[in-house]
Design a protein around this nucleic acid. Sequence first.
RNA 1: GGGAGUUUAGCUCAGCUGGUUCAGAGCACUUGCCUUACAAGCAAGGGGUCAUUGGUUCGAAUCCAAUAACUCCCACCA
Length: 883
Amino acid sequence: MEIASKYNPRAVEEKWYSFWLEKKLFHSEPDRRKPYTVVIPPPNVTGVLHMGHMLNNTIQDVLVRRARMMGKNACWVPGTDHASISTEAKVVKMLAERGINKRDLSRDEYMKYAWEWKEKYGGIILKQLRKLGASCDWDRTAFTMDDIRYESVIQVFVDLYNKGLIYRGARMVNWDPQALTAVSDEEVIYKESHGKLFYLRYFVEGEDKYIVVATTRPETIMGDTAVCVHPEDERYQWLKGKNVIVPGVGRVVPIIMDEYVDREFGTGALKITPAHDINDYNLGMKYNLNSIDIFNDNGTLNDNGGKYAGMDRFACRKAIMKDLEESGLVEKIEDYVNKVGHSERTDAVIEPKLSTQWFMKMSDIAKKALEVVEDGTIKFHPEKFKNTYRHWLENIKDWCISRQLWWGHRIPAWYFDVNGKMEIVVALNEEEAKKIAADKYGYTGELRQDEDVLDTWFSSWLWPISLFDGIRNPDNEEIKYYYPTDDLITAPDIIFFWVARMIMAGEEYRGEVPFKNVYFTGIVRDKLGRKMSKSLGNSPDPIELIEKYGADGVRMGMLLTAPAGNDLPFDESICEQGRNFANKIWNALRLVKGWAVSDELQQSPENEVSVQWMEQRMACVLEQIEKDFEQYRLSEALMNTYKLIWDDFCSWYLEMVKPAYGTPIDRETYLSTIAIFERLMCMLHPFMPFITEEIWHLLQDTDSEAKAELIAQSSIMIQHMPVSVFFDQRMLDDCAMAQDVVTGIRNLRNSRGLSPKEALELFVVCGDGKQMNSRFDGIIKKLANVSKINYVNEKVEGTISFMIGTTECFVPMSQNVDVEAERKKLEEELKYAEGFLASVMKKLGNEKFVNGAPEKVVAVERQKKADAEQKIAALKAQIANLK
RNA sequence: GGGAGUUUAGCUCAGCUGGUUCAGAGCACUUGCCUUACAAGCAAGGGGUCAUUGGUUCGAAUCCAAUAACUCCCACCA
């Protein structure tokens, strides 16, 4: 069979992904095996794959594929999030393209369009994940607004309301004037912005004196209802009990005194606008001040804005300042840098706004959620995120869960008036609401359902439960089997939004944590360390990367640079390493498959020992890899696998057993090699699923048709992951010694320009009990092209030498030796050895060390001394010999 | 303002409870090779006062303190 010299990922990847799907190898049903469950962090239904997803899902796939091969019933559930605000934006855009204005639509009509959009464009990202090789159980694909999830959300809302954990109230909320909805505290991003600090004059009522107040938001003076100073501020004692006139507005407002004011800031006087600032709101409550709302929902001024009514808030700021300056009411204007809240979803400047919203009480539920992380029931990787988590939960505020949108789970609350008073009924549906209204209030008329929907996170916090229908049917077989899930892989920026709340929901609805481990990935940055973003254009298109380097190559590139919790500076060139590795493996296959196999040939002792060594080596590295996985050190695990395959298997093992050109290999060695290769592919499969599947198939013995058919129907995915076994460290050490000899000879050839084709003779001085294990002689001969190895007691004349530890090796040279260069080299080595000895002697000469240090450490030092002395003697002799 | 973290080779990072895994890995780099699996390769090699300064100790990359630089999170003084 002719195999191309370059690995071509594209065809291979398509072929195997459809094969896996066709064979339903990703599908999971409860059975007797132990489950291993992962739920995908549901990407926005509007989303397209970006590098963050690539990283996150690659990690999940590695863990899932490994668990599957370890004999667990692995179930990775995919799905998407309805993402209310961003979907709303997409739908509005689609409508605009068709010349439709959202405002002209009824809620039902709008929802029809929204679903249409979702069916047509939503979830592209899930298709893209297939290109990456994600082994999700697609039969379980869910959506946060599909029937099961929708009903679960409503049920939870009703339940929490009945438990008194959800309430409705007027609060200061973060208002997004672009999306026209409230957003939670967590959805506000504070960004540094360069603005101005305006110093305005507030004249005292009936006097010609004024007080200067500094503000960054002069447009809100329309809503001023007081000016506040510190009660102990000497400068303002004279103002006690007086009123001042709001500049430009003419309203008379009181001076109040409160310790809240920072005397150092600005002039130490603060204007109070209770409707538009959270702190002012609190002061307003305390001093019973009027609250004048001057803004419309979209951020323009309302009728309270007087002549500025209808103007946008930022235009208004300019206009007011112009007017005030003309009236001589401006003291000065300074440049000022402060942090301004922006909406995470729309980037609009957030407006604090008083409005009636639904909230969820957090304090009790937060305590439980903190406990399970503190006591290690849930482990965070890396652990440092425990701190962040703790801090948030200890300072948690109630969660604003209502959003003024249509796309989402509509709040199941109905309103009606009884005797002129508005009553609220919360129920699973309108029918039940009517029943309650009738039973409880004797009301039988029409009900009005709340117009708002729930925060998107109010559905995703149930995800690990609702995916298995554990809210509606808490005792069903699936939830009992798959819950709690095992590992959650997510980015640290949603630790509050999502991770913390899922833990709360788990406690509340299952009395059990939703997952055992949380692996926080880093943030993918560009090589300059900047966050990847559309506006910078510094984010590579993952699909293009896959086409260029193969999915396996990209996966490897991502993983190599991604220790848990560290940001990864992503550079496309790292994918090259992955691609090159795939090619390397491919060529190893070409070599092995190119061998003629002989049944007559007996296995040589060299081949026998090579096979033994490789097996020991694998066992040793496997142990390391298992540790890496236990600690979620995936990049280490991959690196160890990489080195095992490239260095140990390709560079050493294959060279050891490779038959001379044109000659066959004995069957025993061949079969062992295939078996080793196969196991290596199993070890690598979680990282590079496609090429390993391809090679696994090509490696199989398919001499009979029946067997070939069997193999064709099978997959590496369902093979057993090799596990570590006891290994012989002595053998590994012995071989390492032989490898050092080979390297020594190669080095010698290299530095003296000797052709590798010219065979050399090797003398090894043994004695003093130190021996080289001659089991590896054959290998040395083969790999270093040595014709004969002589074990001698004496130094050999007319040779050049090198040392492996304390063992001296000599190679006779047919050509003239550059004595001067040789001497220089040896003398340098001698100098180093003497320096080394001196430092050891110093230690040993220190009585405190000899008495204080553990015996073992002192013994080691003594050994060092003996070795160094031996080496120095040998070097001196060699120098003397050079004449 | 509060908190957390980072600083080790040109780059990205390992380095656990102080001592032969102590100065490591991969990539990059240098030199020589188109050697019949692979130039997306082979062989060999050169790179580091472990951020700085003190302290503890027989002994510090490792423990402690201070300093500096960077990163992130939280709070949001108008």
